[in-house]
């Protein structure tokens, strides 16, 4: 444990990947203690890595907690933006990220969200990278240069 690097791009890459793999497998990030065991580090080293990855806009830690809230495009908290892949239900941070989850998974899936105009559930099916239905509009509210002012709001 003690030989795990304190500040290492390689170490942070391993943490980043382990969180992604957990999201892909379970739709949730790993518990920080479990992740520490996986990467042969201490929970403190994992928390420090989370901090560096958050500074680099790779993930977002839930405020006042040691837990990952987002590793874009995945969300650890329930949202209106769902991706259904067989029996697994993923949550995304926004409509764009819901399609991002499908892209990261790299397999056929269904995106479900709520129409911001009428409130009805809408669904999009992606098979072999082809989108159905091929219409619809997504409303972006926050200008790109402000995304990280408050990424949870964005």
């Amino acid at each position: 444990m003690s030989d795990a690097p304190q500040q290492s791009t390689g170490f942070d890459d391993r943490v980043r990947l382990a969180v992604y793999r957990s999201f892909v497998k379970t739709a949730q990030p790993p518990h920080p203690d479990e992740l520490a065991r996986q990467v042969n580090a201490t929970p403190e080293q994992v928390r420090a890595s989370y901090g560096r990855l958050a500074d680099a806009h790779v993930l977002v830690v839930q405020p006042q907690s040691p837990f990952v809230r987002m590793e874009m495009p995945f969300s650890a908290v329930v949202t209106d933006y769902e991706v259904l892949d067989g029996s697994t239900r993923y949550h995304a941070n926004c409509a764009w990220d819901a399609f991002g989850v499908v892209a990261v998974l790299g397999r056929d899936a269904t995106v479900r969200c709520r129409c911001a105009d009428c409130g009805e559930r809408v669904a999009f099916r992606i098979e072999h990278n082809k989108l159905e239905p091929g219409d619809g509009l997504i409303h972006f509210v926050v200008p790109a240069h402000r995304w990280w002012d408050d990424i949870i709001f964005t």
Binding site: L17, Y20, A56, P73, W96, V102, L137, H139
Partner: peptide
Amino acid sequence: MVGVPTVWELARAWYAGRLSPSWSRR
């Protein structure tokens, strides 16, 4: 407002390679 097909195209490009060990921040 952005069309859903454009957002899908954007998502594919934006999130490409995230599961690769060699992915690096843009």
